[in-house]
């Protein structure tokens, strides 16, 4: 009963859900701050060559382990490289890994979840039990195992991080596919004889986009954290790559007298991940009709 009433209500209100979500997002100060910071990071990554005052691998043995100054605002590392410039270039790596890993796992996990949810029955069981197995291994551990096989470079880190979050998307997509599967517009598509892939792609997926987008935004944050974790352990990107986790890892040896080597890369990770989390949260609130009242 209750469900039907909700459907009727949303139909009455349904102008454009995306425009409505955007309106509610714009009113959310925290989410907008997150979005602005995120955009700044993206600009930073795109225009790294312009923003960074020094090339990322320019060594200078006159200025080893220098504390922050007007010349080097975040100080220099053990090779005299400018830490600020390296962080600017590092944003390219983190954002690339974050976005591509998530796109990869959204597509793979989404297809698995949509198939499982749409067909149900045995196929659903097989796919979801396989996802359960993947979920049983803590994801960072799975990523480590995969990167260990493939070898540590940018592409492999993306694959490893991506694979380990496939089950999450499979679950999200499956749940929302099940929730739209039995609605009238799907029934009518079946009735006029649309093919199954077309129904899934054209009728079902667009109606489950909101939870996927929310999960994906938070997923990028998680992927960035995992990537830096892998590099910190020496299993992800290797020095001299300006990956933030790798920078932290080498800065650790100088923790007693050159704290800036660990403070700034870590701060960059927190700020970027925080902006993604805050923005993702805002998106969730904006899309969630329960909170709109």
């Amino acid at each position: 009963m209750k469900k039907r009433k909700e459907v009727v209500e949303t139909k009455l209100k349904a102008r454009n859900p995306w425009a409505e979500a955007w309106r509610s997002l714009r009113r959310n100060g925290m989410a907008m701050t997150g979005m602005v910071i995120l955009i700044l990071f993206i600009l930073c990554a795109i225009f790294a060559d312009v923003i960074a005052p020094y090339p990322m691998d320019l060594q200078n043995d006159q200025h080893l382990l220098e504390s922050p100054s007007a010349q080097h605002i975040f100080g220099t590392d053990e090779y005299g490289r400018d830490i600020f410039s390296r962080i600017v270039y590092g944003s390219r790596i983190s954002l690339t890994v974050g976005f591509i890993a998530v796109v990869f796992s959204v597509i793979t996990g989404g297809l698995c979840g949509a198939t499982a949810g749409y067909f149900g029955g045995k196929l659903d069981n097989v796919i979801m039990r396989f996802m359960d197995i993947l979920l049983a291994v803590p994801s960072i551990l799975l990523a480590i195992a995969i990167v260990n096989i493939l070898g540590s470079n940018l592409v492999n880190v993306m694959i490893a991080v991506g694979i380990s979050s496939i089950p999450t998307y499979a679950r999200v997509v499956r749940a929302s596919v099940i929730s739209v599967r039995d609605q009238e517009f799907v029934e009518s598509a079946v009735a006029i004889g649309d093919s199954v892939p077309s129904i899934i792609l054209r009728n079902i997926i667009p109606n489950c986009l909101a939870p996927i987008i929310v999960q994906a935004t938070l997923g990028v944050a998680w992927a960035i954290l995992s990537c830096s974790g892998l590099s910190f352990l020496g299993l992800g990107l290797q020095p001299p790559s300006p990956e933030w986790g790798a920078m932290l890892s080498s800065g650790r040896q100088y923790i007693y007298d050159s704290v800036w080597m660990t403070i700034f890369p870590g701060g960059a990770i927190v700020l970027l991940v925080l902006s993604l989390n805050v923005f993702g949260d805002g998106l969730r609130d904006a899309f969630d009709p329960k909170l709109k009242k």
Binding site: L248, Y256, T262, G266, I269, V270
Partner: peptide, 22 residues
């Protein structure tokens, strides 16, 4: 809550070592 789950635990570990141990 937001800051806590945006902070990598290895970085927090280092900060804690810096503050309380060093």
């Amino acid at each position: 809550a937001l800051i806590s789950f945006s902070t990598p635990n290895f970085w927090l570990s280092i900060l804690l070592i810096l503050a309380f141990a060093v």
